[in-house]
Structures are given as structure tokens and as C-alpha cells.
Write a protein that binds this DNA or RNA. Structure first.
Lengths: 244, 244
DNA sequence: CAATATCAGATTGACATATATCAATTACCC
DNA sequence: GGGTAATTGATATATGTCAATCTGATATTG
């Protein structure tokens, strides 16, 4: 069903089978699997699939049926809203130990984005139908899932609102700060994304993104090279982000 | 606490007390109160407040604490994301029999938008703390609430993505079709919104909105006057919306 | 009751700015 | 050394801004 390179149901070992999903979290929300009883957990996990993708592969494609929830065990992926005429908007980067749900899981069973691997990825596919079974039985599980949806909603919503309300410098500043704070957690940081992808995160063309980077460099706010960014005046960048 | 004109706890009559909220729905999701037992329903509704607002009044203000869920009994309101520098983006219009929740209710207890009355409005304020009480007890209620969140999320998400991906003519087409199909359900339709508000729904200035309207009029796609729109070639408008 | 004043919103035009597009180079990695 | 991504410059397009005028609703006056 999905472009997969390896299917590896490590059935021999319960630890291996559950651990990766039990370690996942997202946006500060509790791990949704914590509220499950051992029996429920086993039922949900027993036929999950552990799948490897190579960098560049599509993990889920926009508008296809949403049948599985995805836990990322290792690697990094981009969440893309594909527009008409080939415009791509990257609305999120997901990493190790993130859970990804479409957002409309309960309602329309349809992927609203394409998720594509940026690095080689190991992840688990868990059937949403299994999950629904326990929503009606275990309400603390239902609440945790609701919290996960809520936090993903808020995060994405803020991203989109920022993209709409801000001019290019503000959007570039947001992208640079997001990478530093949320993804790489260091300064300077090396990134694996292309400038085209950074531009897609900022809702502009790569040429415009590069020109804005250059302006920041000329103002002494950052240093940058092909694949690294050094934020020199973070306060200034935050101010630019704030002013939009 | 909120700018209210009248507080009217019609305590004498249970029908009056519950009916308006029991009739609410949203985006096709089930009414969340249907899954409650009579006792639970009574507990949630017994100290709800029925409040009237006049056209123009602010019902909830962005960034204030989110403590209540709002059911609209009669009237129409706009949901606005306020940006820096006075830019306003109207992301939704809510009407009679709609439930409005912030979206981040479970997580950060904070209003992410301003809601303002477009007409005189009668609505109910229901404490979210009351609602949470029953999430852990009644899982069918929890599922219904999750569905409501999901459908609101998807709707808003599609709106924002459209705003980002499309050029002005596509956005204007979306607004005209949305008003016809979702709000007024007639063609031609009379609207109470100003051109500024229509522009705020389309993510552009009023001047740009008017110029686009005129282009549509010149192409014979619509007729319009001060406060009415007649869509003459709906297929063309849909095509413009689709092409972005 | 008609004539007029008033005011907010609607419209138009000229212009400024933000952003995209296209066509070269140039730099870097295998 | 060949290919992909990065960069730069020149230009086109999309959209916003500002100022002026127009329109229609309501209020005011005689």
C-alpha cells in the first residue's frame, strides 16, 4: 500500500515491539499509549508494522485514505501541503519520537498532507481502526488522544497564521528560529534541508529566501553557508519575527 | 467578565434551558450533548449563561483565557485572527446553532481568535471545566467532542491553506462561493458584511477585493451591488477557485 | 413632507512596494 | 569533470497604499 523498503515485524521481542511507540511524544502532550492497559496496548501493537524509508521517499500522500497513525522511531520527515501548480508548503518537520496523525483522523479518514522522508527513516504504522476500538472503552486514552490533536492543531494553526500575516523577513526569521529551537537545538546548526525546502517552509521562492538571508547576513544578524546557519543577534531576529 | 448586555438564566423552564444547545451542530459533526445522560446534561447546563450581544460587540478576545464554550442560539458572528499592525483575517463565520470552541481548549486554555458579533446575538456560555469533568466518565461524549474538534480543525485548516496557496481571484471566488453555499444558501444573496469584511475573509485589502469583484462583473460571472451578490456563472467561479 | 446636510462605506485611479519569474553564472560535492 | 544546488541580476507581476471622488442611507431642517 505504501512505498516501503522493509517490513520488519520484530515479533520475537515485546520490548522492541512497544518501546519506540511508548517513547514518542509531541508538542508537550502526554504519550497517548501511556493510558492503555497492558492488554489494550498489546492489542493495538500486535500487528503494527515497522517500516523503513529512504531519504526522499513519500511516506503518505495527500488525499489518500488515512488508515494508520505513524510513530517516527528515527530520522526526519517533512509535512507538505501540496497546492495546485506544483506549489509546496512545508508546514512541519517531524523527527525521532514524534507521532504523526492526519488531524482529521476521526472525521474524514483522509490525509491532508504529504509526508516525505528527509533522511532515512524508521517508523511504525499503527491501524487507526485499532485505536478507535479503545476510544469508547478507555476514556483516559481518549483524553490523551484529544490532547495530542489539540496540540498539533494549535501548532499548525499558529504556523499558518504566521505565514499569512507576515512579510518575507518575518517568515524567514521564523524559519531560522524554528530550526534552531525546535529541530537542531544548537547554534550554529548544520541542516540537511535544501534552500528550496527552507523556502517552502517560509512560503516563498528559493530566490526570495536567499535574498532575505543575504540581507540578514549584511546586517550582521546571521552567518550562513551552504548547509549551516549561525544566528549572531538572536534578539534582532526575534524582533523581526515579532514585527512580521 | 465579558461585555454582556443581558444575563438571562431562564431557570423556570428546562426546555428553554437545554434546547438551544441541544440543537447545535457543526460541520456535520454530531451534537456533542447527545451522548450525555440526563443527569450529566443537567449538571453541565444548570449554570450556563444565556447572553445577548449587540452587533459589533466583542464576544471573546484573542489571547484571553478560554473558560467557556459558546453555543450560538441566534445571530451571526465573525471569527478573526488579529495580526500585528492591525491586519485582521476573518477565518470563519458562525451562525445560529453553531458551537464554537477555541480549538486549543484541552491544551492551553487560551483563545486563539477574537469572535465579534455581526448581528445582534443570543448565545450560551458553558464552562469548559464542567465539560472536562465528563470527558473521563462518558467516553461517547469524549468521542463526539473529539469529532467536533476534528471537523473544526479540518475546516479551518483548509481555509488557511487556500489563503496561502491561491492568488486573489481564487480567494475572492472562494469567499463568494462560501457565502452562497455555507452562509446564505441562496443565489442571489443579500449580505450584511461590509466589503472590508469580505476582503478580510479573502486575505486582501478592500480595494483589491473590489477590483476583483469588478473583473468578475466585467466577465459576466457575477452581478453585484452594495449589499448583494448574484452568481451568474457558478461553474466559472468554481474553476477560478480550483485553479487558485 | 420635501429638500438638504451629513457621514460612512464603496469605488476609482495613480503610484509604491512585495514578491515571483527567468536567465545567467557560480560554487560545491561525488 | 559533470551535475545539482546556490547565488545573482534584470525584469515582470501581484498586491498594497494613498488620495480623491462617489454613492446611498440616515438625520436634520424648514
Amino acid at each position: 500500500m505504501h512505498a516501503s523498503t522493509t517490513i520488519n515485524n520484530c515479533d520475537s521481542c515485546d520490548g522492541c515491539k512497544y518501546n519506540c511507540c511508548l517513547n514518542t511524544s509531541n508538542c508537550g502532550a502526554t504519550n497517548i499509549f501511556n493510558g492503555l492497559t497492558p492488554v489494550e496496548l498489546h492489542s493495538i501493537m500486535e500487528n503494527k508494522r515497522q517500516i523503513k524509508f529512504r531519504a526522499g521517499e513519500t511516506i503518505t500522500k495527500q488525499n489518500t485514505p488515512l488508515t494508520h497513525l505513524i510513530c517516527i522511531k528515527s530520522g526526519m520527515a517533512k509535512v507538505v501541503a501540496e497546492g495546485p501548480k506544483g506549489k509546496n508548503l512545508i508546514i512541519d518537520i517531524i523527527k525521532d519520537n514524534n507521532i504523526f496523525t492526519g488531524g482529521g483522523t476521526v472525521i474524514d479518514d483522509s490525509h491532508h498532507f504529504t509526508v516525505a522522508a528527509l533522511t532515512d527513516i524508521e517508523c511504525c504504522f499503527i491501524e487507526t481502526s485499532k485505536i478507535f476500538t479503545f476510544l469508547g472503552i478507555n476514556s483516559s486514552f481518549a483524553i490523551d488522544l484529544m490532547k495530542l490533536y489539540n496540540s498539533q492543531h494549535i501548532k499548525m494553526h499558529n504556523t499558518l497564521i504566521n505565514l499569512i500575516h507576515k512579510y518575507m523577513p518575518g517568515r524567514v526569521a521564523d524559519t531560522l528560529l524554528y530550526l534552531k529551537n525546535e529541530i537542531y537545538d544548537s547554534n550554529p546548526y548544520q541542516f540537511i534541508l535544501t534552500k528550496q525546502e527552507l523556502a517552502d517552509m517560509s512560503g516563498m521562492t528559493k530566490e526570495s529566501f536567499i535574498r532575505n538571508l543575504k540581507d540578514f547576513e549584511d546586517s550582521g544578524i546571521i552567518n550562513h553557508s551552504r548547509n549551516s546557519i549561525h544566528i549572531l543577534k538572536e534578539e534582532d531576529l526575534i524582533e523581526i519575527s515579532r514585527n512580521g
